[in-house]
Design a protein around this nucleic acid. Structure first.
Lengths: 211, 211
DNA sequence: TGAAGTGACGTCAGTAACTGACGTCAGTCA
DNA sequence: TGACTGACGTCAGTTACTGACGTCACTTCA
């Protein structure tokens, strides 16, 4: 079967373009309405006029359709590392990376991010994939730190801490009623981490702060 | 089909006992020799005289067979939290938790842990499961901290940091030639984390320490 | 201009990871 | 003794994938 499409320029194209993005959008919609497990890859594909086989040509996994395009976000992290000043300490480098990554999420993306996260939260298989993506991000970050001369285990430690801070900040940023930008939330959480691990002075850091 | 078994007491039993553990051992062996993807659940089951269906009665997943029994390890973490003194700070509580968990791995377990980890490292699907287990551990830890009055995001931050420290320490403990106990390695990595996030004094902490 | 790619898709057949329904039978307990 | 239970087997079915191969609009280059 072939589908002939008239593009905006009036020229003929054999296939409607942007298949991956269309599949992704359809998947998110279907997952949100019918649930992740109750929607098959074939259904997603059919809903945008494609076949199951084509779905799996674009995504290695059924789950992966929800994580399409994360590379640019990881790259923002890495670019942030490169943007850090030459003699910056590991935390300073991570601070730069976090700023770069957080900037990728302007407030307009909140609604979409919230919808996506809500789907993920409702399915263990998707949570698993997300955990792994976060771990991969930390691994990439650690390598970038090592490339800048940071030793082990400092590099891995700093990288994972950065990923953790981002995750917590993101969760908070998505919350209904949150008004701060992701960049600001991230900075706050990072500061919280520093005070948390700082040797105790007089206040028992982090205890009962929100009660 | 039924298999009659003569136990050590000489009495008849319908099934050979300890099916889950036998399946687990067989799975580890087969994964190590033939590879994870090239061994089916049916093969594992057949190798200990059971059927595929029974395999999936014991393990929700093919992957899960490698993570059987982790609950006692998570519990050791939680017990460590309970064992912490009443007014301990979040990091102090986490320190106790780490000690409790690390104590679960005496040096005799090194060889087995190494073999298991080697299988996991060779397969993305297993790595994914491991990432998720670590994340779940952190979630459980965070809840235990919250139950002790630690607020957010301090609880989540401390919990994830603890999980990260454990992971790094475990990786190092497993390495060929490592002679320290897991308890000691864990303490070292935790100390490294504290110095890493400490505001810089004169030495840029963590840089070029291992070169 | 036309012949030889190329890329994005469809079709078909197959494997393996699960799942539900149901049957079996030694051991247990009333 | 008889009802019940728990751990297993059997069978049939669904869905997530994978490999092989065919199709055809579009591109490239002689």
């Amino acid at each position: 079967m072939s589908v002939t499409v008239i593009t905006t320029l009036g020229r003929m194209a054999r296939w409607e373009p942007d298949a991956a993005r269309r599949l992704q959008q359809a998947a998110l919609d279907l997952f949100a309405t019918r649930g992740y497990e109750r929607t098959t890859a074939a259904q997603i594909a059919a809903s945008v006029g494609l076949t199951e086989r084509t779905f799996f040509r674009h995504f290695s996994d059924k789950r992966e359709v929800l994580f399409f395009g994360q590379d640019v976000f990881v790259q923002a992290f890495l670019d942030g590392v490169d943007a850090a000043p030459p003699h910056a300490s590991p935390i300073e480098i991570v601070t730069c990376a976090l700023r770069g990554a957080a900037a990728q999420f302007p407030d307009e993306r909140r609604v979409h991010s919230r919808a996506r996260q809500s789907v993920i939260e409702q399915n263990p298989a998707l949570q698993e994939r997300e955990s792994h993506k976060l771990a991969s991000l930390a691994t990439a970050l650690a390598e970038a730190l090592r490339a800048r001369g940071v030793g082990e285990p400092a590099a891995t430690l700093a990288a994972r801490s950065g990923a953790t801070v981002f995750e917590i900040a993101f969760t908070q940023w998505i919350r209904e009623g949150e008004h701060l930008s992701l960049v600001d939330v991230t900075a706050n959480v990072l500061h919280e981490l520093v005070t948390l691990t700082a040797p105790a002075r007089r206040t028992p850091a982090g205890r009962r702060r929100h009660e």
